[in-house]
């Protein structure tokens, strides 16, 4: 074998992401289970609080977003678990390639596998909960901008707990408080949209959170991974 050419950042990003996507396609349950969980949680709410249309219309944004948070939490643990148990995570840390790019690629793959399906299924869930038709665009935009933030912040928590035996419960304790701002702004935007009021301010803040998370979270994740694999 000849000496390998150093990968460009873009090649590195695509290769890591491609690998993660391929692994995920092999175990389809990892993609499907959080989605099924999301649908079941949404179904439970009308059963629990009654089927009145007005009530459901009012609480639909909150329910959809809380359910999205929980299903993101459920799928997060997979992000580094297999890599940690088969040793490829350590390989990643030892490799001369920048960890920032690889972490970002892994998080992107995770979002494609869990965030994107949530966005695709969201209109159906909104329909089930009789959400105000005016609010549909807002729901889609907040989910499109917000679910990447969930993956990015969540990755920090997973990276911190991946080396632990009982990381699952700890993970939710660590990251759910950090999810609160995104939940507040997203539901506020949807509620504003339902009242036919401008919601671009909320969207701008969610975008700002996304940019902040996109730049800072990979650093925190890299540092946390170095601690966890120690």
């Amino acid at each position: 074998m000849s000496t390998p050419q150093p990968l460009s950042y873009r090649q590195l990003f695509w290769q890591v992401m491609h690998r993660d996507l391929k692994v995920a396609v092999h175990n389809k349950g990892d993609i499907l289970n959080p989605l099924i969980f999301l649908v079941i949680v949404i179904t439970l709410f009308p059963l629990g609080i009654g089927p009145e249309t007005n009530l459901l219309t009012r609480i639909a944004p909150g329910i959809i977003w809380v359910a999205a948070l929980l299903s993101a939490l459920l799928s997060l643990e997979r992000l580094f678990k297999n890599d940690h148990s088969d040793g490829s995570l350590e390989q990643m840390l030892l490799s001369p390639q920048p960890l920032f790019i690889m972490v970002l690629a892994k998080i992107s793959a995770h979002w494609l596998l869990t965030g994107l399906p949530i966005i695709l299924i969201a209109p159906l869930l909104a329909l089930m909960l009789h959400m105000e038709p005016l609010a549909y665009p807002a729901l889609m935009i907040t989910l499109a901008l917000g679910t990447p933030v969930l993956s990015l912040i969540g990755a920090i928590g997973v990276a911190l707990t991946v080396g632990l035996k009982k990381g699952g419960v700890l993970l939710s304790l660590l990251i759910l408080p950090l999810y609160i701002p995104i939940l507040i702004f997203a539901t506020a935007a949807i509620e504003a949209a339902a009242l036919n009021m401008p919601y671009s301010g909320h969207i701008a803040i969610i975008s700002a959170l996304l940019v902040l998370a996109l730049t800072l979270s990979p650093f925190a994740v890299s540092a946390a991974l170095r601690v966890s694999t120690n």
Partner: peptide, 19 residues
């Protein structure tokens, strides 16, 4: 590990407060 979480929390405290 806890240090990383503490610093992440510092970034988040103003965000949480204003949100």
């Amino acid at each position: 590990a806890a240090g990383i979480l503490t610093l992440v929390g510092v970034v988040n405290i103003p965000i949480i407060k204003y949100s």
